[in-house]
Design a binder for these strands. Structure first.
Lengths: 187, 187, 187, 187
DNA sequence: AATGAATGAGTCTTCATTCAT
DNA sequence: GATGAATGAAGACTCATTCAT
């Protein structure tokens, strides 16, 4: 049941947003009562935290597999990270969407905790960029931090518009974005 | 008074988000009563619509000045559009933030209307890209639509993290992002 | 309306206690809705505070009239204070009952504030006793503080059992208690 | 286990009051689950009843030992009853406090039953007073019933303020109160 | 004896909205 | 233009209680 609640919540949060989704909505969907929800979760916020935590822990783990890979070039790593994020739109779509949007609704403490995780993800990207700069794979004069934000912008924004069943496939999108970032669009 | 309500609302929506800001919050800030609000606006949603509309109408107007400029190259135009969006973080900060976040809280009809405006903004970017492709300023084989989404991602995401009083100035950020997009980060 | 809410609440708190009385109970009794309650009071606790404050402020004022009287002997003052409390069972019955019972349901801050008022009332009694001891009206070796608690016990406990329409009138009860305290029951 | 539940409940009721203590609070404290509680008690109210019953049965038993004593004078008996109640603040503190406060939370039937026990306790005091009056130990014109209420007020009120580790010892308090009642405070 | 899951009625509170004045 | 009072629907959360295992 706990899992069912989590799944349903992810779906509903993804569809209507966190504040717009009431506990009633969640339990009605599952044909159980509010008491059931509160038997499994101490609060709505904690549920959101759990979702966040599950998602980002797994995400960072997969990211670090990429980052610490011995064979990939740094450019490959960036592409792989972009792929990681874009793929999740399909695989964990709603979960990913929830992740990228609802932080503002958390209390200061939880906000802080989540922020740390996100920072780590971002700093991992930054580290790859810096490595690329040193090894001559990337331009030497980049602001690694800003570029990392830029890459996250490109991918995270996709969660707002990308349809996995659209004209462009995930893998194509990965290629388009990674080329745009690595080689630019200028001729 | 209507203007004062609008301004205060933009500020509060920017700070706490749309759903988290109550009409009571707004009128308390202005030392008036709820009746006053409803004298000027038919609903909270309509207020949000007005804010959106004001903002985006002005934004598109400024974008089209750029797009139809006779002197700018297409690359310059893209840079100018990036500058337009980044500058607004400072100039119309809260308003811009509201614009980029609170769409989900609109009813379907209003959502639709806003979506059209946003689409137009995006299609204008797409048009510039296509022009650049034809004129040989940009690579010939780009997916103009996806690239437009990519550019919007980079800039819109900035609203979540960019501090105008930080280490990097707006103009520097514009340069960083436009170089990243036009020439890529690869060496 | 605010007054009506206060009055009804006093009645209901008196009958069923603070926690056992829901806001619903109060507004149902008045044929209004919960919104109305919260238009006039910020919280249930604040309502209780208001009731307390109203009651005790008035009570202390009347007590101090007695305490500072120039003609009364100290013994007369004690009797008058007993009368003050016993009379309130009839006049402000429920209010008095609420006052003497529901402190535990207040938050620490409000608890503190009420405690101060009560302490003042008690210390005023203590002061009268001490004056009586000095002036030879009362035994010289009393623990004024404990006696003050004793007197309060006798009167406050009455709120639990005394019926103003019973066999014993208020004034008779005052006489019985003040004689018991001043001259004792031993022969 | 049943005893452990009872003990813990007494403690918690004493600390936070009956309504403010949830069954969850009780079982959490004991590291068991709610099912366990309901295996041993049919309801929260019944638990309160049991506590009451246990306490008052024992109390009345001890009171009657005093009342029927052949050596004590009636004055001594009153003092002994006062001692009985004051001592219980220390010995059975929480239990006694619960007893003197939470009656209101019982259903009418249980309320009735408790009331009878309390009445008996009070009537026993009244009987002692009447005996004292007849035997010339006490003033002849007392309202024994009201005096009994007065004595109960003095002692029961102590449960609200008396600290056993304070400046005044239990035995001192007994002396103070019994002197106040028997000989009065007037000089 | 004890547990874990579920219930459902109830709690306080919030809030957008209405409307007579 | 603006106010004050009231509404009613909805919100998150609590809790005594039940019951199959």
């Amino acid at each position: 049941m706990k899992e069912k609640i989590t799944e349903t919540s992810i779906l509903l949060f993804g569809k209507k947003g966190f504040s717009q989704t009431s506990i009633q909505d969640i339990v009605t969907e599952l044909h159980v009562t509010k008491g059931t929800f509160y038997y499994h979760f101490p609060s709505k916020e904690q549920l959101l935290m759990d979702i966040h935590q599950d998602y980002i822990t797994n995400l960072i783990a997969r990211q670090e597999l990429i980052v610490h890979d011995r064979i990939y070039s740094q450019q490959d790593k960036l592409t792989a990270i972009i792929r990681l994020l874009i793929n999740d739109i399909a695989d964990k779509g709603p979960s990913a969407r929830v992740f990228s949007r609802e932080v503002r609704h958390l209390g200061p403490k939880n906000m802080q905790r989540i922020k740390q995780d996100r920072d780590q993800f971002r700093l991992n990207i930054e580290a790859v960029i810096k490595a690329g700069m040193q090894q001559g794979e990337l331009k030497a004069d980049l602001r690694a931090d800003m570029i990392a934000f830029g890459i996250l912008g490109v991918t995270n924004w996709s969660y707002n518009w990308f349809k996995t069943d659209g004209e462009v496939s995930e893998e194509e999108l990965v290629t388009i974005f990674s080329e745009m970032i690595l080689t630019g669009i200028g001729s």
